[in-house]
């Protein structure tokens, strides 16, 4: 690829969506594409004209100052909010208008910025809930589970085995049966990641997975995110404030501010973009951050 000039990346949104689409046809079916997405809360535009495309198997980061609309974007993708306009297409299916549980069934899992675990359930049960969409045990088969050969019993065993694989991957064996509310913060973040993985997602939305972690935990988290991308082939959409981490692991980055996209490109392109430097990284420290 010819390194695009800053100017070329500058004008995105509606115009960009049109221009990129034909170019991308040649090498990849649009795995995940957001087009001209807008979200209004009364008179306030939380998102306006946001558009981007994610290639399968890549790590795509969204950065922007607090209140830029990053989490709103996630909530729109998930179906927690209904966008005011635009479209979100995942494997050629429209996500706008779908309920969150339908979106989950299509293979999109997420973690939350403020941990949203089922605090009174054990770690194992939290991950088992992640297997919810794969299980068929209903009220009757579950309530009348009479033994290990019953339908519910067999299904439990199959999925517990799957969950055990995730526990092995994330090295959580020691706290398997602890109520997650009792676990330390870093571990809880990890459990959230595990729960999302239990859904066997094709697209994983990570909302600040490293927030509030110490540097060692952060290193581990980066390692796991890379692992998930490489070994499980999961496409990752990431929100993160830690610039070093974002620049390190992202394939592409979208910068938004006040709900509007500023630029999109590879880490190298984004780092030198003048508007990004002024809007997000701050004028004074621009040299330091770009380095």
């Amino acid at each position: 690829m010819v390194p695009a000039s800053g100017r070329k990346n500058q004008d995105i949104g509606k115009a960009r969506g049109r221009r990129v689409a034909p170019a991308s046809k040649g090498w990849c079916m649009a795995f995940f594409r957001v087009e001209d997405l807008s979200m209004w809360f009364g008179g306030l535009a939380a998102l306006e004209g946001v558009g981007f495309e994610i290639e399968k198997g890549s790590i795509f980061s969204v950065i922007g100052p607090n209140g830029a609309g990053k989490t709103t974007l996630f909530n729109c993708i998930n179906g927690i909010y209904k966008p005011s306009g635009g479209s979100i297409r995942f494997k050629d299916q429209e996500l706008v208008g779908k309920k969150p549980d339908k979106v989950a069934r299509m293979g999109i899992a997420r973690t939350f910025q403020n941990i949203e675990l089922f605090t009174h359930m054990s770690l194992m049960e939290n991950l088992m809930l992640g297997r919810h969409v794969f299980m068929k045990t209903g009220l009757f088969r579950g309530g009348f589970m009479w033994g290990r050969r019953s339908y519910a019993g067999r299904e439990e065993q199959i999925h517990r085995k799957k969950v055990e694989e995730i526990i092995d991957l994330l090295e959580l064996q020691g706290v398997r049966d602890y109520p997650v509310g009792m676990l330390p913060y870093g571990t809880q973040k990890l459990v959230e990641l595990g729960r999302a993985l239990a859904l066997e997602p094709e697209l994983l939305l990570l909302d600040e997975p490293c927030a509030g972690m110490n540097s060692e935990e952060k290193q581990d988290m980066i390692f796991w995110i890379k692992d998930i991308q490489d070994e499980l082939g999961v496409t990752i959409l990431l929100i993160e404030h830690d610039m070093a981490m974002v620049m390190d692991i992202s394939d592409r980055i979208l910068v938004i501010n006040f709900g509007r996209p500023i630029t999109e490109g590879t880490p190298a392109q984004v780092q030198i973009h003048p508007e990004v430097l002024t809007a997000y990284l701050g004028e004074e420290e621009s040299d330091e951050c770009a380095a």
């Binding site: 927690i80 549980d101 979106v103 989950a104 997420r110 675990l117 089922f118 605090t119 359930m121 049960e125």
Partner: peptide, 15 residues
């Protein structure tokens, strides 16, 4: 239980 503890998270997990 998931609905009781965190209903939005439960929904995004497919409940």
């Amino acid at each position: 239980i998931a609905i009781r503890d965190a209903d939005i998270a439960a929904e995004t997990m497919g409940v």
